Amino acid sequence: MLDDRARMEAAKKEKVEQILAEFQLQEEDLKKVMRRMQKEMDRGLRLETHEEASVKMLPTYVRSTPEGSEVGDFLSLDLGGTNFRVMLVKVGEGEEGQWSVKTKHQMYSIPEDAMTGTAEMLFDYISECISDFLDKHQMKHKKLPLGFTFSFPVRHEDIDKGILLNWTKGFKASGAEGNNVVGLLRDAIKRRGDFEMDVVAMVNDTVATMISCYYEDHQCEVGMIVGTGCNACYMEEMQNVELVEGDEGRMCVNTEWGAFGDSGELDEFLLEYDRLVDESSANPGQQLYEKLIGGKYMGELVRLVLLRLVDENLLFHGEASEQLRTRGAFETRFVSQVESDTGDRKQIYNILSTLGLRPSTTDCDIVRRACESVSTRAAHMCSAGLAGVINRMRESRSEDVMRITVGVDGSVYKLHPSFKERFHASVRRLTPSCEITFIESEEGSGRGAALVSAVACKKACMLGQ
């Protein structure tokens, strides 16, 4: 009897593995994704193909990295998701002549009506938060230079001027797309009239992360975010950046690689679950690469896999709870928690219980395998993109072996128990001629924006502006 049951459990697990095998990517698959990513990057950089390229390769006008001589107080704003952060950054000489960066910050959550109302409502709310922060720190009387981390696709015309191309991540505030974001912020500050600010720089969160990590390690020339969304930036040779005049030196390019796949480059790798996630998203047909990796989508992918296993009578005796059938019910943090389970399955059992399920031991094991399959594919897909960037940098610099540091931020990278190990191992397999160091950014977005502002202020002083 026991043997029969054991055989049935083994057969069930084997069927589960057959279904989950769809998520496995072979090294040849990853090399294919990497080569296609490089081709799209090239198209994004070139003037004649930029418009139709899915990977936009947006110039950021960040050319210099901090040298350690900029000092002063800077205000930093960070808008990239449902939370908005205001930070005071003091850049100065530390002990023994070292450079020191001290920060104080406060988080504000953005109400739904500000995210989806008008641009005026959104930026009025942001300036209200700045006003509140300055009151708390008794700094209303000071006109501070301000660095703005704005983590949406922007076409820069200068370091302090950028046109919002399109909202992502659930934002829909009308009247912002096609307009200068810094102008919208300046107008809102003017409307309030109770404080003055000098907006000197606007950067993407990947750029802010790279600059913040450069402060720790001067070989950091790539910034990457794996959180709600997924994106990367890197220092490109100016001669390859056709959208900006000049051939000397390097400029940081914001790849906006989340949109890779929007022209069909990933079609052969998309599964039924991916198509369902895409169809029910706020932007169907867009940001397809990001939807395979980002935390906004990972939990939902797992939920759809679990429903398939229920329908195949391989999980929960073929019956799903009402909660499990509800879109968004299986949160991405559950994926991390399930994979963090120590082996007694308590954590998995508790999560499934909150979803109205009474799982068996085998159910718990199957749910864990589903989570591992989805998150491992995410790590491997992400590795193909980064390997594409790094191999490109090595080739354009004609280096036999390139040493490089990548600064990384984002909740999936930082909080998932195995993502970074799987990701690092896969990147290294795909970049055999590179020695890569990964560092995690601390308060990256805010500190990085302030350091970019410090560079901009120093330049302005040198130019006598």
Rank of each mutant, 00 (worst) to 15 (best):
K420R: 13
D132E: 11
D187S: 15
T437F: 12
Y215H: 15
T149L: 04
K420D: 06
R368P: 00
I366M: 09
K291M: 08
L451R: 02
I439E: 12
M202K: 04
A11G: 14
V33N: 04
L292H: 12
T116H: 09
D132W: 03
M41Q: 10
F260Y: 05
T362L: 08
R358S: 09
F195R: 04
D198Q: 15
V253I: 08
T431G: 10
V101N: 13
A208H: 00
H105G: 13
A320Y: 09
F123W: 02
L165I: 07
Q219T: 10
D198P: 05
D187F: 03
G72N: 08
D194R: 03
K169I: 01
L304G: 08
K414V: 15
E435R: 12
I404C: 08
H141C: 04
R192S: 04
V86R: 02
T65D: 13
L271E: 02
K32F: 11
C364T: 09
L415K: 05
G407F: 01
S383I: 02
V226Q: 00
S433T: 11
E9H: 10
V203I: 07
R447E: 05
L2S: 11
T354R: 09
L271H: 11
F419C: 04
K90F: 11
F74R: 15
N254M: 02
L164S: 04
D363A: 08
E93A: 06
W167M: 03
V374C: 13
R191E: 00
S398G: 14
M381Y: 15
G294H: 04
M238E: 15
E442P: 06
M197Q: 04
E245V: 14
P432S: 10
V277C: 06
F330I: 13
R275F: 14
Y273C: 15
E93R: 07
M197W: 02
V91E: 03
I211Q: 12
K102T: 11
S396R: 09
K140F: 03
R368M: 08
V412C: 05
F23L: 10
R397M: 08
G294K: 07
D113T: 10
I211V: 13
K13Q: 07
L386V: 07
E28T: 14
Q287I: 08
E95R: 08
T326Q: 14
K140T: 06
V408T: 11
M402F: 12
D311S: 14
R308S: 13
S336K: 04
L146E: 03
E300K: 03
S54H: 13
D344H: 08
P417I: 12
T228Q: 12
R327I: 12
L357C: 07
L292Q: 11
N283K: 14
N179K: 15
S453V: 06
M238P: 01
E322W: 10
E17G: 08
A456M: 15
E216R: 09
E237R: 06
G388A: 11
L20M: 08
G446M: 14
H317V: 13
V86N: 02
I351N: 08
K459F: 06
Y234C: 08
V408C: 07
V62C: 05
A53M: 00
A379S: 06
V374I: 13
